[in-house]
Design a protein around this nucleic acid. Structure first.
Length: 112
DNA sequence: AGTTTGACTGGAG
DNA sequence: CCTCCAGCCAAAC
């Protein structure tokens, strides 16, 4: 039994779209981070499920969403090129350096 | 209605 | 760096 209503589920889905669309080029985010920003901490798997469903549609930059380890999506060969085009380099291990490319929404504030 | 699965996570070998 | 595992939550079986 879902712990959230269908309405909340729809809101969550919408929030995920908004957040992913807000990730600036050259930066990356994580499933857990997005779930938190959407207001549903602990729903990383749902984020993954949602992004998997859209994949190539809506023009969402879902290639900028990685797991907490900075690891790329398994079975998506193009992703590394998409990231590379934005200036995101991969470590020898094939992972992204989250400390360097991780997106912090607060970056916009700038003048605090 | 019970079990398995997955674009997850953090920690343990 | 690798794999394995428990915890997680909704969807798919």
């Amino acid at each position: 039994m879902p712990r959230i209503s269908d309405q909340e589920k729809a809101d969550f889905k919408q929030a995920v779209y908004e957040i992913v669309a807000a990730i600036p080029s050259g930066k990356v985010s994580t499933y857990g981070e997005i779930a938190r920003l959407a207001g549903f901490p602990g729903y990383q798997r749902m984020v993954g499920r949602i992004l998997r469903e859209v994949s190539d549609e809506m023009g969402l930059p879902c290639h900028r969403v990685l797991n907490s380890q900075g690891r790329l999506v398994p079975g998506w060969a193009e992703q590394s090129e998409l990231l590379k085009d934005e200036g995101i380099t991969l470590k020898p291990s094939g992972c992204v350096d989250m400390r360097k490319f991780g997106w912090n929404p607060m970056d916009n504030i700038d003048e605090i």
